[in-house]
Amino acid sequence: MSEHTIDGIIEKYRGQPGSLIHALVEIQHQNHWLPREVMQKVADALQVPFAQVMQIASFYKAFSLTPKGRHEVHVCTGMTCHLRGAAKLRAKVEELTGLKDGETDTDSRFTYQTGACLGSCSIGPELIVNGKHYGRMTPEKIEDVLKQYE
C-alpha cells in the first residue's frame, strides 16, 4: 500500500492521542500490517509515546506486526467445523501452502491462520479466503479454491 495513503490516515488524526486505536485500525486495514516506521510516525503525529503504540499494537490480535501475504487464508477451528472435519482441511492447507498457523510464505502469496468460531457453523467446515466464505469444504476442493488466488 502506498505511503501516501498511510500518511493521509495519520494526518487525519494528528494531535489526537485518543484516536490511536482508530488510526492503527485504519492503517492495518489498508496495509494489512503495521511496520515499525509507521508506528513511529503515528506516535509522533498523535503525540503518544512509542511504547504505548507498541503496547496497543501488540495487545490486540487484530493488529499484525509482521507482513501479511496478499491473500489471507483462514480455516475455522470452531467446535462445529472441527466435528465436521476441520482438522483434515488444516492438514491439506498446510500441505498445499507449506505454512503453519500464523505464517506467511516467502513470496507473500498467502497468510494462513486458524480461528474460531468464524460464525457460519451451518456451512462448516469452512475455509475463508480474503473474507470470502467457502462452505462445506473438503480437502479435495481446497486446491481448486487456492488456485484462484495468485
Binding site: P49, F50, A51, Q52, M54, Q55, S58, F59, Y60
Partner: peptide
C-alpha cells in the same frame, strides 16, 4: 520518558 512498555497480552 516511556523507555519501557508492556508488550503482548
Amino acid at each position: 520518558k516511556n523507555a519501557v512498555g508492556f508488550i503482548d497480552n
